[in-house]
């Protein structure tokens, strides 16, 4: 199980590097799709089938969006590689961050022993033990999402609505000002 997970992660890292390396934008989009599908398989290995399903759906929609923005407008290759100065800066920052992260992992429990076992009266244990009686839901992820923490889901819906609203405003063909100008032009005629 752990070996499979490590294999999936290595595959995802490889796909991520390919996505950044290639000049062809279509290849980059497909490589990032591979990262997403790898995440989905990893979720399945980690006992999270709900997440795997959601991830697949999200990945398909994201792929369509990204293809619309590359092939849809006729851009196939990207112009010019990043300058060496920028690459050096990025490498330095990345290595520094990686070192900090690896150091901070010593404070975490070993892989395979969840945090909820270390804390007394962890909310997760309560959800697992009492979820069925209190919410009537067999799937405890959904009982947390829609019952115990329903306000978070409401907030999520708000965020999505805002994002879609912003996207619609940006995609509008004509701004309000242009339209008023057009009306003015018609009056003069």
């Amino acid at each position: 199980m752990e070996l499979l997970l490590i294999f999936m992660l290595l595959f995802m890292i490889l796909a991520g590097i390919v996505a950044l390396w290639t000049d062809e934008l279509l290849s980059a989009v497909i490589a990032v799709g591979a990262v997403g599908v790898g995440t989905s398989v990893a979720f399945l290995l980690l006992g999270a089938p709900d997440l795997a399903i959601t991830q697949i759906v999200v990945e398909v929609v994201a792929l369509v969006l990204l293809i619309k923005v590359t092939i849809g407008v006729g851009v196939r290759t990207m112009s010019g590689m990043p300058s060496p100065k920028r690459l050096r800066l990025a490498a330095a920052v990345t290595v520094l961050l990686l070192l900090v992260m690896v150091r901070s992992f010593t404070g975490l429990p070993e892989f395979g022993s969840p945090v909820m076992e270390r804390v007394d009266d962890a909310p997760s244990i309560v959800y697992l033990e009492e979820g069925l009686e209190r919410t009537g839901s067999a799937n405890q992820v959904m009982s947390v999402l829609l019952d115990f923490r329903a306000y978070d889901t409401l907030g999520e819906a708000t965020v999505i609505f805002t994002a879609v609203f912003g996207a619609l405003v940006l995609l509008r063909k004509k701004g309000k000002k242009d339209r008023e100008d057009d009306d003015g032009g018609e009056d003069e005629e």
Binding site: A48, Y127, Q140, V141, M142, V144, A163
Partner: peptide, 17 residues
């Protein structure tokens, strides 16, 4: 643990938005 899974489900969908 179901709690991180529920939160990540939220995060995935927000990521799409």
């Amino acid at each position: 643990d179901p709690l991180p899974q529920a939160m990540v489900l939220t995060s995935i969908v927000i990521g799409l938005g």
